[in-house]
Design a protein around this nucleic acid. Structure first.
Length: 993
DNA sequence: CCACCGATAGTTTTT
DNA sequence: CTATCGGTGG
């Protein structure tokens, strides 16, 4: 295990460019590449190469990422490749966490107290808010904070430059801002806190003054380099100051952190400062279908200033992305949910909810989506946004822990001083803070001395308040603090974190307090507390398992060992935005992911929805850099592997007719999108399967799970919501095709009545009714199932054959002719009335048509199914089927169908064997697509038999197989093992659990 | 001076 | 949906 791996173990599965990047002998390597090109995979492989082939010690390698999630994933990947737990020795993490580790170990060399804490966002905001209020200078606290952070993030090099000075001079109220900055910094220092920017700045200071801290470092690798800001750039160089070996990967098109002072400029800066940098570009995209990539490129290319890169699709064309227009945000959410359901249903077991992501510009947009998913009973997880740690009850607990750790943290103390209520209000708190500041004592010290009689606080406290403070705050916390000190003695068994929290909960009588304060939702909150405890337990366990925060010993340099759990736990919480409940494993339920676009960077999903693509959301109203907003959309779009949906509500949320405009980034290319979800016929599903390298389930297994009355089309919402009222009156909307579903058709458009809210509730109601029908129908007759299925499949087939824009006209002609079938309708309705006497058996109404088709009609033009069928059929079937029970079982017992299908297929396969096997993707970027009818090609003839799923599954009477002329494209669902092997590189699929 | 009530407005993205 | 503001009652 410890012996060097053979090269091919490291390099296997890499393409030439990737291999070159991994094995480059150059000191600095810059890997520039577009999305889905295996950047991170390449970086990972280079780490393994450096350790296993070049022979660097893992602890001499620094790998920096930007998000906790990315770090975790990187570590996991490296761990898999490296083995022996050596990944734990690599100094790997976010810039901030690495900086913190160095500061914890060596901070005292630059006069940093050992017990520094981290001021999170909320802390900074609060502190600055208070300062602004006190200064009365009329600065917007929000602007002040942004200004301060920007100033810090610039880094020392840039800050000293003339340009920065000139720019700064232009800012109005500079004096006030500067003063605010100074006071903020003073406050942090007094409270022994570092904010996020300080972590980087102070670490840079440390490494500049004490280069020996990083004298062991052989190589530095940076992921998502385009997101580095000024300090981070300096830090990177400082990390690598000994050997100047740096590897970066990045994509300027995915720079979406400009607001956090990320500078794409750093890329050119690096190339200038390290002229011998080996530049490698990765051009193949292994993630997305060609059409997704094409459209994404159309979007990003609107930025004329951007650095152009090649991006070659490896996959087939795939189905065209969808741009869907909905009436309101809630209709949009409902549509997303309906489309998710449809995709899940139509793809059988190939896709699960885990494969779906909904990516949002802002976390706040999730509200409608969450409620729609909730109503549909679809489980989801929301990533991004600091939800968990921002919960009130969790915040309080954390603040207690912070005060235990740092009694001098006045802000944390101020927040817990009156929870539970101790009769100390806002005003007293303000006075205490002021007194502490003027007497240069911490609030804790003031109170402590006061209660012990050493010094009487100038702030007057009532007797009961004094009492409560002493009994339920000062003493208990001091006790805990003592226990920590005692236990972490020679024996090294520290006072357990969980134990500590539990003691805290007990002394505060936390559960009762919660009950008192929040009688209505106290259970939820208490559950959160439990979750918090289990999180802490996980943390402790993880920490024991791998001592990942340790830095390698360096001779002649004193290091402070971090032995205490608490500070590390607090730091981890502060530096991790999401609570990442590590144990998603306890229920393996597939979850739909809702995420901000920012948090989705670096990830991929088979199916991606990007709602709210309207002006004001993307680009966001408050965004100052429109190009960055465009890149954001680009990032979102390129997360998708096989299905991409954009959507937007036409009307704003206030119901006052305020209109949303389609995002200017999408508008110019809106014609390239489908107007509604694609039809999931066999070829389309086959393409999806091939992109994902999954097995497409046989269609009968898909269809037998389809509920009756399930709509295989994206037709529950009007394509143009503004015409929806006319649709209701007319019964049919132009461009919306329905064949045998007239009864339900009439109902559906009503969902989108004048009021969005109303439409919403109606929709839900209607669905319930639907479900009921479906449940009942399963006990009615067998034929309802295949009967329905055939119609659905059939529609799917027709639409599939006509999805292209040129084909639309033709499709409409077909649609119109097919929907005009008065004779048929009448006979069906008559059937329904006589058999069940209930209008809800619309599904059953389709039995005759398809049943007859199945049994009696030989395979032919699929549209032939549309021909009116006669009433006698219905009668003929009714008695025969009356006794049948459940559709599913029956389906499987139909021997003729599946048995006959196989030989037929084999025959067809043999037929195709005359053409060469599909070339492996790497050999020919185009060849693999050749079987896919291009969107721009003329539509296939309407007689295209394969488009009829129905025919392939159910309708091939013995001996007819050879008669079917199936176009070459139709067996695409096959993925031969050979093809799979030939895939030059399969990026590790990210485990998003 | 503290606690509670209702109304109100306002909400990017992350370490 | 939730911090914040302004008012009232203890």
């Amino acid at each position: 295990m410890l012996s060097p791996k053979p090269q091919r173990a490291i390099l296997g599965g890499l393409n030439d460019a990737q291999r070159r990047a991994v094995t480059s002998d150059a000191a600095t390597v810059a890997i520039l590449a577009g999305p889905g090109s295996g950047k991170t995979h390449t970086l990972t492989a280079r780490v393994v190469w450096l350790v296993d082939h070049v022979g660097f010690r893992p602890e001499d390698v620094i790998v920096a990422t930007f998000t906790v999630k990315a770090a975790r994933e990187m570590k996991e990947r490296i761990g898999k490749a490296l083995g022996s737990g050596r990944e734990n020795r690599i100094i790997l993490g976010t810039f901030h966490s690495i900086a913190r580790r160095y500061l914890a170990a060596y901070g005292r060399h630059i006069g940093l107290s050992q017990k520094f804490g981290i001021a999170v966002d909320a802390d900074s905001r609060e502190i600055i808010g208070r300062i602004c209020k006190r200064l009365q200078s009329g600065i917007d606290p929000y602007a002040a904070r942004a200004w301060i952070s920007k100033k810090k993030a610039k880094g020392t090099e840039a800050a000293s430059s003339n340009a920065a000075a000139q720019k700064a001079a232009k800012v109005p109220g500079l004096q006030h801002l500067d003063q605010c900055y100074r006071e903020y910094q003073d406050h942090l220092e007094r409270s022994n806190l570092l904010d996020y920017d300080d972590l980087l700045l102070r670490c840079a200071e440390l490494l500049r003054k004490f280069p020996s801290c990083v004298s062991n470092v052989q190589a530095v690798l940076i992921d998502e380099y385009q997101d580095t800001n000024g300090v981070q750039y300096e830090l990177m160089k400082l990390f690598a100051q000994r050997h100047r070996r740096i590897t970066i990967v990045g994509d300027p098109d995915q720079s979406i952190y400009g607001w956090r002072s990320a500078e794409i400029r750093n890329l050119w800066r690096l190339l200038r400062e390290f002229p011998d940098t080996d530049e490698v570009s990765l051009e193949e995209n292994y993630r997305s279908s060609q059409s997704i990539l094409d459209l994404s490129l159309l979007v990003i290319q609107q930025d004329k200033k951007r650095y152009q890169k090649a991006l070659k699709p490896i996959h087939n064309k795939g189905s065209r992305p969808v741009l869907r227009k909905l009436k309101s945000a809630s209709a949009e959410a409902d549509w997303v949910v309906s489309e998710i359901k449809r995709v899940m249903m139509m793809s059988g077991s190939m896709l699960t909810h885990n494969d779906v992501a909904i990516l949002l510009r802002t976390a706040a947009l999730s509200r409608h989506i969450e409620s729609s998913l909730g109503k549909a009973g679809i489980a989801y997880r929301m990533v991004g946004g600091h939800k968990f740690y921002e919960r009130e009850e969790i915040k309080i607990l954390l603040d207690y822990l912070r005060v235990i750790h740092q009694p001098e943290n006045n802000d944390a103390l101020a927040r817990i001083i009156n929870f539970p209520q101790r009769g100390i209000g806002k005003i007293t708190v303000e006075r205490l803070l002021e007194e502490a500041e003027t007497s240069s004592l911490s609030v804790w010290a003031v109170l402590w001395k006061h209660c012990r009689g050493d010094r009487t606080a100038k702030t007057k406290l009532t007797k009961p308040a004094e009492q409560k403070l002493s009994v339920s705050l000062l003493r208990p916390l001091d006790d805990i603090r003592k226990q920590i000190g005692e236990a972490s003695g020679p024996n090294g068994t520290p006072f357990g974190l969980v134990q500590m929290i539990e003691q805290l909960l007990a002394t505060l009588d936390f559960q009762k307090q919660l009950q008192k304060e929040h009688p209505d939702d106290y259970e939820q909150r208490w559950a959160n507390v439990q979750e918090f405890i289990s999180l802490a337990a996980d943390f402790v366990r993880e920490m024991d398992r791998s001592d990942e925060d340790a830095l390698p010993e360096i001779e002649g340099l004193q290091q402070t060992k971090e032995v205490e759990v608490l500070p590390r736990f607090l730091a981890t919480v502060s530096l991790a935005s999401d609570a990442q409940t590590g144990d998603d494993s306890h229920d393996n339920k597939p979850l739909v992911t809702i995420s901000t676009i920012h948090a989705a960077k670096g990830l991929e999903w088979p199916v991606v929805f990007v709602p709210a693509v309207y002006n004001g959301s993307i680009p966001h109203v408050r965004a100052e850099d429109s190009d960055e907003e465009r890149r954001l959309l680009y990032v979102a779009m390129t997360r998708a592997q096989s299905l991409l949906y954009l959507s937007y509500p036409v009307f704003g949320p206030n119901g006052n007719g305020e209109r949303n405009e389609l995002s200017p980034f999408v508008e110019p290319v809106s014609g390239s999108f489908l107007k509604k979800g694609p039809c999931f016929d066999r070829p389309v599903l086959g393409e999806i399967a091939r992109i994902l390298q999954r097995k497409l389930p046989p269609e009968d297994s898909i269809f037998k799970t389809l509920p009756a009355m399930f709509s295989p089309e994206d037709n529950l919402f009007p394509v143009d919501p503004e015409e929806s009222r006319q649709d209701v009156k007319g019964g049919f909307s132009r461009g919306e095709f329905q064949s045998g579903e007239n009864t339900s058709r009439i109902k559906r458009p009503r969902l989108h009545g004048p009021s969005a809210g109303q439409a919403h509730s109606e929709e839900v109601q209607w669905r319930r009714e639907y479900t009921t029908t479906m449940e009942q129908s399963s006990t009615v007759t067998i034929a309802s199932l295949p009967g329905f299925v055939s119609v659905g499949a059939h529609q799917a087939a027709i639409t599939a054959a006509n999805t292209t824009s040129e084909a639309t006209q033709k499709a409409e002609r077909i649609k119109r002719s097919s929907s005009r079938r008065p004779a048929d309708q009448k006979s069906i309705v008559g059937f329904v009335r006589t058999v069940s006497g209930s209008a809800r058996s619309a599904a059953a109404a389709r039995i005759p048509e398809s049943a007859k088709h199945n049994d009696a009609v030989p395979v032919r033009n699929p549209f032939a199914v549309q021909q009116p069928e006669s009433a006698p059929t219905a009668q003929a079937i009714d008695p025969g089927l009356a006794g049948h029970k459940l559709g599913r079982g029956k389906l499987m017992t139909r021997p003729a169908v599946p048995n006959e299908e196989k030989p037929v297929r084999r025959t067809q396969y043999a037929c195709f064997s005359s053409s060469p096997p599909r070339p492996a993707a790497a050999e020919d970027g185009k060849g693999n697509n050749s079987v896919e009818p291009d969107d721009d090609e003329p539509p296939p003839p309407p007689t295209r038999p394969a488009a009829c799923l129905h025919a392939t599954t159910f309708n091939l009477p013995k001996g007819l197989g050879g008669a079917i002329k199936r176009p070459a494209g139709l067996s695409r669902e096959r993925i031969t093992p050979l093809e799979r092997l030939r895939k030059p590189f399969k990026p590790l699929t990210i485990n998003r659990s």
